[in-house]
Amino acid sequence: MRSAFYITVDDRYLGIGQAQARRLHALWGIDVHVFVEGEGGKFRDENGRDGVFLHRNLMDDLIPQGLPATESWPRIVYGRIFAPYLLPQYDRLIYLDADIFPMVRADELLGLALPGGLAAVQDAASIGSAPRSAGGLDRAAWLRSIGVQGARYFNAGVMMLDRQAWASVDFGAELLAFMTRYGDAAHTQDQDFLNCYFQGRWTEISPRFNFQKAHFNYGYEQVFPPVFLHFSSFEKPWLQEAAPDTVHGQFFRPYQQMMGAAGVDYRQYLRPRRQSVMRRLRGGMRKWLTQRGIRTGKERRQWQEWRQKSDALYQGFRDDAAAGRYRDMDFLLDRRPEPELSFDGSYLRRSLDVSFDPVQ
């Protein structure tokens, strides 16, 4: 069975995608395809130097026109649905978002059965609640609003799919039909569509394979050692150096090294931290008070939100363990993790207790 990774990016993320692809190939030893949509003409790399194939503007005719897109959810995200049509030489394809750091190789992923054609990881941000974009709906009502009748909802940042089964579906027509019916409620558009289309049929795998930002503060990296670390928020570790006791600060240098190994100049991706003087002053004052044992309202609210999410994750993972939901592993969870967190004046934070494989 022949397998490959694929990544879809626009020109803004091209260097990030190339660096990620080089690391993936070095770790896993299988082909990696980078699809970039942007300026310039069509290009198809048939040779794949060092196992990485770069393709440009091959999906414009595949992705239907008129699909909703925003700056934070651009048109290129739909490419993860349509790129598999262009890779008929493979049996299995693994899609990764470009903001994922490949940590280690885990060959058992490639051998998993896919009776429904797709494997993915539950979306961590929506465990126990609906996303903020749902406008105050409870979780069950939010899922119904996007056509999902069950309780499981996956994050599409990592997906393994059966390419032949995928290619048999007219996803253009299916996606347009979904948008006609549910588009007003769909805010993570193609992810909501995929959850609706594959409901009751997707194979669930553990957070090892998509360890998301919403997992970071809760201590589960020892239960689910990350294979793919997903920076699934507006904060990205390559943008600016952060405090070393945050995950973004922890991975600032590894991202520089990964880009350097791929011949990408990391400096083109650096961005100044945008924060008003007043906000910095207020954050500094709250941190100063915390260091003296005085908790401000902001910190109390942060801890309250953390406890609510911690309760939801713990109960959710216990239920998953009891039900044996994860196809790749069995696990026990007899106590809640108790990670050490600090308050930086704005947010609770910690670094992860993880390691990753070095590659040349």
Rank of each mutant, 00 (worst) to 15 (best):
R286S: 07
F228N: 04
A312S: 14
Y220R: 01
V227R: 00
R253Y: 00
N195W: 05
L118V: 14
Y90N: 04
V34I: 14
F224V: 06
R144H: 14
F343C: 09
L332W: 07
R350W: 05
S346E: 13
W306L: 09
I94A: 13
L229R: 00
M103G: 01
Y13H: 14
V52T: 12
N217Q: 13
E299L: 11
P358N: 11
G79L: 02
L24W: 02
M160W: 06
I100N: 00
I294Y: 11
S145H: 10
T70P: 05
I81Q: 03
W202G: 08
L62V: 01
A323K: 12
Y153G: 07
F154W: 07
W238P: 00
F101Y: 03
R201M: 05
G15L: 03
I294S: 10
F171R: 04
Q65M: 09
F178M: 05
E338H: 14
G128R: 09
D10F: 09
F171I: 08
L58F: 08
N47A: 15
Y218L: 03
E235G: 01
G111V: 06
L289Y: 04
W306D: 02
L109V: 14
V277C: 07
A119Q: 04
P207I: 05
G79W: 01
D60N: 15
G136L: 07
P64Y: 07
Y6C: 04
V354D: 01
P339I: 08
V32P: 04
S233N: 11
R279D: 14
G324E: 09
L143I: 07
T203V: 08
Q275N: 08
Q89R: 14
I63Q: 03
W303F: 10
L62H: 05
R279K: 13
S133A: 13
A21H: 02
R300Y: 03
M258S: 01
D190I: 06
R2W: 06
F209V: 10
S351H: 02
Y95Q: 08
W142D: 07
L118Q: 06
G293M: 12
P64I: 07
Y314F: 15
L352R: 02
A130N: 08
S168H: 12
F252E: 00
C196W: 14
V359F: 03
D11Q: 15
R274N: 12
V52H: 05
D265E: 11
R75S: 04
D138Q: 06
A19D: 03
W28P: 00
I16T: 10
L93H: 07
D45A: 11
D190C: 08
R279I: 05
Y85C: 06
L229T: 00
R12Q: 13
R144S: 13
F198L: 09
M259A: 02
P64T: 08
W238H: 04
I16Y: 02
D99T: 00
E39A: 15
F171W: 12
A262Q: 10
D31F: 02
S145D: 13
A323S: 10
L14F: 15
D10Y: 12
F224C: 04
P131H: 03
L62G: 01
L110H: 02
